[in-house]
Design a protein around this nucleic acid. Structure first.
Length: 877
RNA sequence: GGGCGUUUAGCUCAGUUGGUAGAGCGUCUCCCUUACAAGGAGAGGGUCGAGAGUUCGAGUCUCCCAACGCCCACCA
């Protein structure tokens, strides 16, 4: 029984029950053979290392809203879920686990380690998607994918080989960002810079066979054993005598030349730079220009190399220990002339925050410039749009200055590079399969995890089989929804790869939302301990509450969103409001038939609410089509709470008590509830489904999630009645105001006398019952009298006056003050408006409607002004 | 060094073509009125960061400045 439904909405049990209902009925499954137009989204695949965090919750909610909206709007909607193998991140986690057991990956060996990681990945692969169920995610789990599964791996090989054959992938020795902890190269975008307080040491390099020295400033004295030259600017007169001479490296004694190169900034430090091509990107370039052979002095673990160039006492020392020892020795031997504080930016590994070591090594790269061309064009010519637009600039700026992408990683967990080397000759073959396993060994490096993510929109759809049903039906996808933090990592690469391999942009729109932050605006992170767990929020407030709150906080500009636990009360309270309003309607639907309401029997209030509903549906559709998703939440909140609940439901109580209106009112109540639930469903799927199922009405739809989404309907447009209803609202609000101002309890009914304007009298008569009930009025009388009312409060509404005789209840001085205050406000407004009308240029330039509007407002104010003046006079008398 | 964002009520923030500012929370009154106290009714609260300009009219457009935040580049 409806009466037995609790007055507090039980989100937890409802959400569980409803999700099960959808899932068991296979309602999330998309049909590639459907005749309906396609609408598809591929999920930004979460890492298998992670658990659901607030960022996912927002991202997934927005996607689910779009998917559910389009599903209801007649599209064949596919939301394809999946996860990312997340190369370094996952390997780090598994290695950490091993370390706790006192083991390293090398103790296990590659094969065993991979087995271990697969087990781990398989265990966690579904965990995060299972958590998404709590959000109500309507994705198609039958199509779940993993960046490391067979299909995605085949796509990776296909792409690698094709790019290699086109000359767009090459292998070579360059300076890369090397993480000594991960012991792998990482790409430029995986390197984050932090400002650190360091030192600038000035070191003296004595000239060979003569007196004198050159003084060099460096932040990295530990690399001096790798120096191959000292460089000065060619035009620097200070040093012109020295160019071409030879100096001796302190502590090691190796001899190196002084060279001239324009790279040197004369104004920085001493104007002389030590050149260490193996450990600095700029020095590498200088070294190449001058044909200087690089010397490695730091190894992959960040330790001093045990080689001839490095004095034995430093062998195996950590780079920072070595730095300290070298500085000490330099100082002791008087090579160190000065030490200065120096603030500089230091590269850190995105995954483990270890300081990056620029290291010369042999790696695989993707030549980006040729690929970027089309990726730039697609955004410039509008085939791909970013929302908000400003991200286009960001994307283009990066793309136009793009550098080659280092794609090889010295890891085990990832797609192994499909290059094979002959065991004897070393000859290299790049192919999807090993040409001859007997004699060829595969490259031991794996690919950057973003290489496979970059193929995600099509590798998940069956590509390279372009004839697969999914690829034909659902590719390109309809939109990409993500945060701005992965535009370079992911979005740019999907666009590049999508265009190169499918000749189509993988999506026409990139919808970028803000990032979730804590209440102080700080990024949420485990180390800061300021994270909010979405599952905890769902347990406490409900999934719909979480979704509604987050959605309402989304702005079109994609601003970051600050949240705190309590903010979710907003959505929870709204869910509860929906629940209770629904309970009321359902309780009052007993005995109603299945017919739609009778247009001929609609009252002014019925027409008003239908008109409002209609406008709301129109606005909802317009807003969501323009990705103003936050706005959809606001208009639904306003419509449902402030219009349907606060006014229509209250007035419906009066109509339900009237036998001649009862049935049609029931039908309107039901209709508006039904449509409201449909409008709310994309944002709050569970509660709307639950309530909708309780509505006693046969429907052609099995579930609200499959019902038609409301659109604008000419037949429900009643602008005239909507206008007339203003009189109801104004009258009731003024009467309530009077009541409150004089502390008249609701239990005390009073009579009113309406001195109606002749155009408004019939409307007042039509709405008498509403005024009586909602303003607690006993009797209403009409009068044409212009006499001063005696000892009354009064309200001026539109062009009419309402007199409230309250002889013993009010202080007339207070009433005079009250009226005076209103009068002052009106006069102020009138002055401003008449001032405007006196301005000739305004009258000349302003649009006609505005002038008309201004005129009629002035007239209106004049009438009200007179009325109030009369009132004040009579009160004073 | 270059670019972007933010600055509006006590707090958190909306504000689409320029027409004279809104919401939620909080505050103050009153109310258990038969859907809802996670509720209802009423009220108070802002010279829209500073300055200049365009315009009949600027929170909204232009310029400049300031504070805070972010991104990119990076000189050892």
């Amino acid at each position: 029984m409806v009466k037995d439904l609790p007055t507090i909405y039980d989100a937890k049990s409802t959400e569980e029950e409803i999700y099960k209902f959808w899932e068991e009925n296979g309602m999330f499954k998309a049909d590639a053979k459907s005749q309906k137009p396609p609408y598809s989204i591929v999920i930004p695949p979460p890492n298998v290392t992670g658990v659901l965090h607030m960022g996912h919750a927002l991202d997934e909610t927005l996607q689910d809203i779009l998917i559910r909206y389009h599903r209801m709007s007649g599209y064949e909607a596919l939301w394809l879920p999946g996860t990312d193998h997340a190369g370094i991140a996952t390997q780090n986690v598994v290695e950490k686990k091993l370390r706790e057991q006192g083991k390293s990956r090398h103790d296990l060996g590659r094969e065993k380690f991979l087995q271990e990681t697969w087990t781990w990945a398989n265990k966690h692969k579904s965990a995060i998607l299972d958590q998404c169920k709590r959000l109500g995610a309507s994705f198609d789990r039958s199509r779940e994918r993993f960046t490391f599964d067979k299909g995605c791996s085949d796509a990776v090989k296909e792409v690698f080989v094709k790019l290699y054959e086109k000359g767009l992938i090459y292998k070579g020795a360059y300076i890369v960002n090397w993480c000594p902890r991960c012991q792998s190269a990482i790409s430029d975008v995986e390197t984050e810079y932090e400002t650190e307080q360091g030192h600038l040491w000035e070191i003296s390099y004595p000239l060979k066979n003569e007196a004198g020295a050159i003084i060099v400033a460096t932040t990295r004295p530990e690399t001096i054993f790798g120096d191959v030259a000292i460089a000065v600017h060619p035009d620097d007169h200070k040093y012109s005598e020295l160019v071409g001479k030879t100096v001796v490296i302190p502590l090691s004694g190796r001899e190196i030349p002084i060279i001239a190169d324009e790279y040197v900034d004369r104004n920085f430090g001493t104007g002389a730079v030590k050149i260490t091509p193996a450990h600095d990107p700029n020095d590498f370039e200088v070294g190449k220009r001058h044909n200087l052979k690089p010397i490695w002095v730091i190894d992959g673990e960040g330790k001093m190399k045990a080689c001839g160039e490095v004095p034995p006492e430093f062998h195996g020392l950590d780079r920072y220990e070595a730095r300290e020892k070298i500085v000490g020795l330099l100082s002791y031997k008087n090579f160190l002339l000065r030490t200065r504080e120096h603030e500089h930016n230091v590269g850190k590994c995105q995954r483990c925050n270890t300081t990056i070591e620029p290291l010369l090594s042999e790696q695989w790269f993707v030549k980006m410039k040729p690929l970027a061309k089309e990726a730039i064009a697609a955004v410039k010519d509008g085939r791909i749009k970013f929302i908000p637009e400003r991200w286009e600039k960001n994307y283009l700026g990066w793309m136009e200055n793009i550098r080659d992408w280092c794609i090889s990683r010295q890891l085990w967990w990832g797609h192994q590079i499909p290059a094979y080397y002959h065991n004897q000759t070393g000859e290299m073959v790049v192919a999807k399969e090993n040409p001859d396993p007997e004699n060829y060994t595969q490259d031991s490096d794996v690919l950057d995890t973003w290489f496979s993510s970059g193929l995600w929109p099509f590798s998940t759809m069956g590509w390279p089989d372009t004839n697969s049903d999914d690829f034909k039906k659902f590719y390109p996808t309809s939109v990409l929804v993500t945060g701005f933090d992965i535009i370079f990592f992911w979005v740019a690469r999907m666009i590049t790869m999508g265009l190169e391999f499918t000749k189509k942009p993988p999506f026409p729109t990139v919808y970028i939302h803000g990032l979730i932050r804590d209440e102080k605006g700080q990024k949420m992170s485990k180390s800061k301990g300021n994270t909010i767990d979405p599952v905890v929020i769902i347990d406490k407030y409900g999934s719909d509450a979480l979704r509604f709150t987050m959605t309402s906080l989304c702005t079109y500009g994609g601003q970051d969103i600050k949240i705190s636990d309590e903010r979710f009360e907003y959505g929870r309270n709204f869910a509860n409001k929906i629940w209770n309003a629904s309970r009321f309607v359902l309780m009052n639907l007993e005995g109603v038939d299945n017919e739609e309401f009778d247009f001929s029997k609609l009252t002014i209030v019925d027409k008003w609410i239908l008109n409002e509903l209609n406008n709301t549906a129109k606005e909802f559709n317009e807003n969501i089509k323009n990705y103003r998703i936050g706005e959809t939440a606001h208009i639904m909140y306003d419509f449902f709470w402030n219009k349907y609940c606060d006014w229509y439901v209250e007035i419906a109580k009066i109509q339900l008590a009237d036998d001649s209106l009862k049935l049609n009112t029931q039908r309107v109540l039901r209709y508006v509830l039904d449509m409201s639930l449909r409008l709310l469903h994309p944002i709050m799927p569970h509660i709307t489904e639950k309530v909708w199922q309780l509505i006693p009405q046969k429907s052609e739809f099995k579930a609200i999630m499959l019902a038609d989404f409301p659109v604008w309907n000419e037949k429900l447009s009643y602008p005239k009645e909507a206008q007339e209803m203003e009189l109801v609202f104004e009258t009731i609000k003024s009467l309530r105001n009077v009541r409150q101002s004089f502390n008249i309890p609701m239990s005390l009914m009073f009579d009113i006398e309406i001195r109606a304007d002749k155009n408004e009298k019939s409307t007042f008569e039509a709405i008498e019952a509403y005024i009586k009930r909602l303003a607690k009025v006993d009797k209403i009388s009409y009068s044409d009298s212009t006499d001063a009312p005696k000892k009354s409060a009064a309200a001026v509404v539109s062009a009419s006056k309402i007199i409230i005789p309250l002889e013993n209840l009010i202080d007339f001085n207070e009433e005079i003050k009250r009226q005076q205050k209103k009068l002052d406000k009106l006069i102020q407004e009138k002055n401003s408006l008449t001032g405007r009308m006196k301005n000739e240029k305004f009258v000349q330039n302003a649009p006609k409607e505005l002038i008309e509007q201004t005129k009629s407002r002035i007239d209106e104010i004049s009438v009200q002004e007179n009325s109030i003046n009369d009132l004040i006079c009579s009160l004073k008398a």
